[in-house]
Write a protein that binds this DNA or RNA. Sequence first.
RNA 1: GGCCCCGUCGUCUAGUUAGGCCUAGGACACAGGAUUUUCAUUCCUGCAACAGGGGUUCAAAUCCCCUCGGGGUCACCA
Length: 532
Amino acid sequence: MREVVTNAPLSGEIGHRKYGVPVARALSVCYNEAQRRSVTMSVRTRFAPSPTGYLHIGGARTALFNWLLARRHGGQFILRIDDTDEARHVDEAVAKILEGFRWLGIDWDEGPEIGGPHGPYYQSQRGDKYEAAIIQLIKSGKAYPDLTPTTEVDTLRRAAEAAKQPFVYRGKERDMDPAAALDVYLSKRPAVRYKVPSGRVVALDDKVRGHVEWQTDLLGDFTIARNEGKPLYNLATVVDDIDMKITHIVRAEEHLSNTHPQLHLFEGLGGEKPVFAHIPYVAAPGTKKKLSKRNPPPGVMVALEEYEQAGYLPRAVLNGLARLGWSLDDKTEVMDLQTVIDNFSLEKVVAAPAGLDPDKLYWLQDQYMKQLPSAERVDRMIPFLAAKGLISAPPTAEERETVAKIDAASGDRLKLLSDIVRYGEFFFTPTIDHDKEAAKHLRKEGAAEVVEKIKDALATLEPFDVKSVEGAISQLGASTGLGGKINHILRAATTGRSVGPGVYDCVAILGREKTLRNLEHTLAAIREGRIV
RNA sequence: GGCCCCGUCGUCUAGUUAGGCCUAGGACACAGGAUUUUCAUUCCUGCAACAGGGGUUCAAAUCCCCUCGGGGUCACCA
């Protein structure tokens, strides 16, 4: 006879798209605002990273989905550090993760630094709770101490593998009397295994995977604590999720198989089962393989901080992350956070792996850069210039003014915040060098004469502004017969670059003095054959 | 190998729960053109997909079965 254990839905608010009963729709007519709030207020989600030293872009996405669900329903988002493996507990590693969240603007209601009613929020500090759970489980006959040496278990495992049989381990002590088992546990502190019942089917109605079943006969008695009472991941997670009253577990799909043992633990511990949603992992661009930090595809940034360093805007990354496996509708791509919060639902999360699309993220970044008020863009670009030593930190009023002018003259050319370095470097250096493309224009026959004429024209130009420079240069273009082509030479000779902000703007921002100096410098370089 | 999941343009996706509104929509990328006296914008056009095979049905991307492909996971790690 088979019994079926399922995770009963906690609320009808979020019915499953395929298998869930559309309770919300059925009840919506009789829902009043207070009732709706009482249901939605109960949503508590969590993100439980293991402190590895950086925030993986996929992890950030998982955290975002949890955060979004909590915010959407007026609930709480909890941050917990999964550092049961003591070697993983490193303060700087945790700090890195928290910095990542702060940069993105994902705040947590309970967790590191702020605490909360269900703390501590570091698993390494919750040993007593795991110990209590282990004892409770042994007392109630749900778990037992395993005295078999690991070497022996390994041998059995290998034998099963060799025979191509599933390895289903049941310890010798599984039928030991609970009281005796507890004595053994307390005195010898051996590993502890959960007694998986046989002949049952465990079912899960996952919010994104749908209905999933496992046969208990295929699951061995899994370990919940290694010797010396050190709790293992599955145990710690379930104990904490119950203790912290987590209602919705949204995590990456690689945890789907962990759900089977965890479901047993929820039952054994008498905890209410949360709603589960296993979201697809983030795949490397153009593949279905999980994006990994260990061997990232060339040019693909995996750690969140790399995006910050590259000059991405948090809101662009947020938008990109939200679109990874989730969509608002059939056409909306650019949406602010509030729109995402207002519309987020697990039902719209796709089940297939979501490939990261760097091109699209870059495009999104461009969209947000255009929207950004100039003053804010300038504020955010300044650190990139300062980091290169091009301006002082903090910048002087004059430097800030120049950056603002460059920004205005650049129009939509600045895609990444760091582009200011590429586009504006020469404004802050005492002299200029000539890049390859610029050199091409300056190597042309008669270039020196043209540069000379430009210098003469600008030397006495009055006033010296964008309009007058444009007038003078176009006149010169006409008289030399070069027409618009004179601009190439002008740019190359004054900035050393072939691309950049509007060329008349560049000259005007540079000012007469610096422009003439750069022209002299270029002239000397041409004549001394230093332009190559 | 066992178990589990997934499979719509090159990419991200809409559409799949309630089969017809889909000769499959949008976006990114790419190609071409227009605007811009650099570049970047902007605009227009184009390219391009239901993994395959069987069913069920008047009708299937949508339901059923099989095959193939991809992935995840199988610890006294998290």
